[in-house]
Design a protein around this nucleic acid. Structure first.
Lengths: 335, 335
DNA sequence: CACCCCATTGATATCGTTGTCAAAATACAT
DNA sequence: ATGTATTTTGACAACGATATCAATGGGGTG
């Protein structure tokens, strides 16, 4: 049989309520009593029954990660960051795949939260940008932290990365290598990062007074295939750029393939840059020059500020923008 | 205020206990009563309070996925398969990163299961092969299903893939392309699949009466770097094989890089095969000939038989071996 | 010394289910 | 018609915590 509060209370010769006070760190317990209770707790190996706690106090010590069809390595990194935060605070993590296009999304998640008494949610793109959903969460007072939202319309906690700035810097780096005819592959239109990265690119180009050739700007969706298709199109035109900046690494890999098939060598005939530093960036040849975002750290922070919030420690940590890091590898050539 | 059993019982004019019987599908409820109760349940939108159910009946309708540092895309596939099974049965999924080397692994997980009243566990390699851990689960009567165990020593439910056979067939395919000087990169020694794949390779080689050149057999650990290092070593020797079979795609990508650096072209100068059909296999150039395992389906099945078991439907589904599929791409050349 | 205040403690109700067990209703056998 | 077995139902306890609120006791004040 498991050890209950009652057992502890007998052992420590106090009431069960006092034991409850101690394990919940409530104020107004005499120091001496507290010590005695903790001694008994340890001696008996007492761990509170979560179901009972949850039933009575309507909190579960569970947070949930919501995602919709993300890049696999991105998901793994996010999840790992959150998990580590949970582990250090004794929370548990449940995961929930969503369909951001489903009309029942809101209702489904509200039920889910209510049923499991989920203490808080963490959202990843493209969920991070579904304003009506975020508002619904606010309305129902469901605590949540948002990863990489494009704007901050709601009261939500958030963590973001400097996508705009990073794309700007990477573009500068490409220009510094002597390129001024640069193509760009856009990301998934529903992902907040797509626009930020594109704008960073455009602004860096414009500040140098270079032209943007619309034939070299292609709409992708972050998939390998969309990169490949974009590459095929670009390489079919009579004039090709000297460098292409793809909004993520998978699309850059797609371009690489289309280049190979055209007999173009990278970086000799055409330079390439990606974004994200996903595993493929370093496993492909030549290795991709790219931008690394501290995805795991961001997720970790999101989980921490979320838990800090519903534990009433709002001051300690807050919403925050993380800096990305330029990673120079082999796919960029100096002209 | 949420709707409770009490509300339903009043509305349907029966006792709470009878409502409980209906929502738990217990026997010995008059058909007519059942109908009336269900009507009220729907009318009021009643959903049972999980905390209360869990407290009283010691089940949570939660299953957990345990993993230790797997390949990221593998994890995402596994998780997705499990999640879908959960969704269709109303279960929830919590995830738990483990350290298979930790001496506290068993204790940690036992506590975790007990605290959350986890109904069942799903284990991935290398956890699948930790016999003392599996025995501990048996001893504590913790339901679990194991993905890709190397042997079936315990009573555990399992799903596996035919790694041996698939490696055998892929090797045959390589031989059919005219190769008889073939290298092999082994996988992580703690992963069950590593030996199976190696044995499949060796047996296919031997049945053709070919030699295995020990200098071409390298120990890897499934990482890109270990593949790269193995490639460097192999390509430094005076005689190099005409083909190399790497136990997974990441290592094959590593070999590819080392080949490129040596000025060896793939598949012109050396042929290559991988295993797993991970995203990189199709995003690298030339695309890898490899073996695809139905990872998501396997995980889905594991979750289903697990839940079927503790819902007393043992006959319907059982442990099962899944077939892999040979995927022929560009990295293999006919001599 | 009487009084009040506040920190500390505990008795008891409560959360919303399921488990136990006995009562009531019905079916079946004689 | 009577007794027995079986199905159906409900009253009430129990799961193990927290919430409420009152009781206790020591310290300070006038």
């Amino acid at each position: 049989m498991a050890v209950t509060i009652k057992d502890v209370s007998k052992d420590a010769k106090v009431s069960i309520k006092t034991v409850s006070r101690v394990i919940n760190n409530e104020a107004n317990v005499a120091e001496e009593t507290k010590k005695r209770v903790l001694l008994s707790v340890n001696k008996l190996g007492f761990r509170p029954n979560k179901s009972a706690q949850s039933l009575r106090s309507k909190r579960s010590f569970i947070i949930a990660l919501l995602y919709d069809n993300p890049n696999k390595s991105y998901l793994a990194d996010i999840q790992s960051g959150i998990f580590k935060a949970c582990k250090s605070t004794g929370y548990n993590l449940v995961v929930q795949e969503c369909d951001y296009k489903s009309p029942e999304l809101n209702a489904t998640i509200l039920e889910f939260v209510e049923d499991l008494k989920i203490d808080g949610l963490i959202l990843t793109p493209p969920l991070s940008d579904m304003d009506d959903f975020l508002e619904d969460l606010d309305k129902h007072q469901i605590e949540h932290a948002v990863i990489a939202p494009s704007t901050k319309k709601t009261e939500s906690l958030y963590v973001s990365s400097n996508d705009y700035e990073a794309a700007y810097k990477l573009t500068l780096e490409i220009i510094k290598h002597g390129h001024n005819e640069i193509g760009f592959i856009k990301g998934h239109p529903k992902h907040s990062a797509s626009n930020l990265r594109f704008n960073g690119f455009i602004d860096a180009i414009k500040i140098h007074g270079f032209d943007v050739n619309d034939a070299w700007i292609k709409q992708g969706n972050f998939s390998f295939k969309s990169g490949f298709d974009a590459g095929v199109e670009i390489f079919e035109s009579d004039r090709i750029p000297t460098a292409i900046f793809a909004s993520n690494d998978s699309m850059a890999a797609g371009i690489m393939k289309s280049a190979h098939m055209k007999g173009l060598k990278i970086p000799d005939d055409i330079s390439l840059a990606g974004f994200d530093d996903s595993p493929i960036a370093d496993e492909i040849w030549p290795a991709l020059t790219t931008v690394k975002q501290p995805v795991e750290k961001m997720a970790n922070h999101a989980a921490k500020i979320l838990m800090a919030k519903f534990n009433g420690l709002e001051e300690t940590n807050q919403s925050k923008e993380f800096k990305s890091e330029l990673i120079i590898r082999e796919s960029l050539r100096t002209l």
